[in-house]
Design a protein around this nucleic acid. Structure first.
Lengths: 128, 128
DNA sequence: CGTAGTCGATTACGTATGTAGACGATGGAG
DNA sequence: CTCCATCGTCTACATACGTAATCGACTACG
């Protein structure tokens, strides 16, 4: 019984931006991650390094030495992250049921015809 | 031009629990809010008072004096809150498109037949 | 072999958040 | 009129987060 019941630590907003870069492409060095995110967010390399360290502590990233520096890669799948975050929202705001969320989005988001078609196809698949 | 371009301040997790109580029923006194949420969350009255104050500062709650104490009521509609939070999630995780979120939920959440029927009805309505 | 650039690690610091105790005003009971 | 229960406010404090500078180690260039 390894008594390390690691329920995954929460990933903050800024940290999430770093994760996205690494989900797009990995492994990357700190510098490369910065190339991806520093521009858009107006961050310095130092900031990215801090975020990377924190993500490693949170076990969200794995490191692999590459000569003098590290290569970082995600340790959790994007789909898992998306799953828990979506679930959190649905639980907090829609009593745990996905349908009301969808209803809300449908009304508020002005789905395109393509969106609607996509969803209908999905429903058909689910019903079979 | 009133230069108070108040983009609504973010409501934290704990604060959100308080908002939910007041969305269910309002106005309420601090004590009454505590009756609603202190049990489930294991909070003390003091904690609720702090959260209420912070929410007032954030303009999420309005106060109305009632003798010696205050009555609190929401100043923002739940649907607005739900809207911005949902939008945040969709933007962060699904590139701003609702359909992928739905696809994810559909696969991961095991929608009931009722859910599916509900959504189909909605789609029909949207297409007309 | 020394020096400049680069790397991760350490330290910093302000604000937000979770949680709550202490305090001063005040209104109602007696 | 006095005293106590309550109220909101102020203060407190640990942790998380956003953002970054600094520092010691190392490497590649000259």
């Amino acid at each position: 019984m390894s008594e390390t019941s690691e329920q995954p630590e929460r990933i903050s907003d800024a940290e999430h931006a770093v994760m996205e870069a690494l989900w797009r492409r990995s492994p990357l060095t700190a510098q490369e991650v910065c190339d991806e995110v520093c521009g858009p967010r107006g961050w310095s390399l130092a900031t990215v390094k801090t975020l990377l360290s924190r993500l490693v502590v949170k076990q969200a990233l794995a490191t692999e030495p590459d000569g003098k520096r590290f290569l970082y890669s995600p340790r959790i799948a994007r789909s898992d992250y998306v799953g828990t975050e979506s679930r959190r929202l649905v639980d907090r705001l829609f009593g745990g049921r996905a349908a009301p969320l969808f209803a809300h989005l449908a009304r508020a988001e002005a789905l395109t015809q393509d969106d609607i078609a996509e969803i209908e196809a999905l429903l058909k698949e689910l019903k079979s």
